[in-house]
């Protein structure tokens, strides 16, 4: 059991480092790709709340190690996002179809960004530090493109996953013709 926990710690640490170092260095819009949140959405989609919380808190801690935001800002944002996304999934998204994953992913990205900015800016206000000014066209355009990129990549991952397993419902229900026996 401890080995399993240690494996998970190593794995989510590597994924977070890939997000911070590798993805951050990629050109143009590719740096908007959020591998961390996509993985958390996968876990939530399969009802693995405990795993999602453990991974989310761990990945948030690794984010905070390399961030100069107030201590715990990303960890808190990650955990709140997971709880809210789980609430949405349990009460409004009851099937595991592509559209429900995309809705869950959109909601998760929005929540994480919102809470991260909120916590950082509120604490900046309290500590008299620099403020992240976000109300401009460039910022929202950038975020929108980032969201579309992440949803596109999420769709690809889901289709690949579905190709190798059958844990998802189809997007469109197929109608079967019933031929009455004469």
């Amino acid at each position: 059991m401890y080995l399993k926990i240690l494996n998970q710690i190593i794995f989510f640490s590597l994924i977070t480092l890939i997000q911070i170092g590798f993805v951050g260095a990629l050109p143009v819009w590719f740096s908007e790709f959020n591998l961390v949140l996509l993985i958390l959405v996968f876990f939530l989609g399969f009802n693995k709340l405990k795993t999602a919380l453990f991974w989310g808190a761990g990945m948030g801690i690794v984010y905070d190690l390399y961030s100069f935001a107030p201590s715990g800002a990303y960890t808190i944002s990650m955990v709140i996002t997971i709880f809210l996304a789980y609430f949405l999934m349990e009460n409004f998204l009851t099937n595991r179809s592509l559209y429900s994953f995309l809705v869950l992913a959109s909601f998760t990205f929005f929540c994480f960004e919102f809470f991260s900015y909120a916590i950082i800016n509120i604490s900046s206000l309290a500590l008299n530090r620099e403020f992240l000014f976000i109300f401009n066209k460039s910022f929202f355009l950038h975020k929108m493109y980032g969201l579309f990129l992440n949803l596109f990549l999420m769709s690809i991952f889901l289709y690949l996953f579905n190709f190798f397993s059958f844990r998802f419902k189809p997007v469109f229900l197929k109608k079967k013709k019933i031929i009455a026996a004469k």
Binding site: L17, G21, G24, A25, L26, V62
Partner: peptide
């Protein structure tokens, strides 16, 4: 925190170099 950053810094550096190389090739 210091121990973790000491362990993780070399790994992060390598990921960043790979990402930058890809970016340079793309540009």
């Amino acid at each position: 925190e210091n121990l973790l950053t000491r362990i993780l810094n070399p790994v992060l550096k390598q990921f960043y170099i790979i990402g930058t190389d890809i970016k340079n090739i793309y540009e």
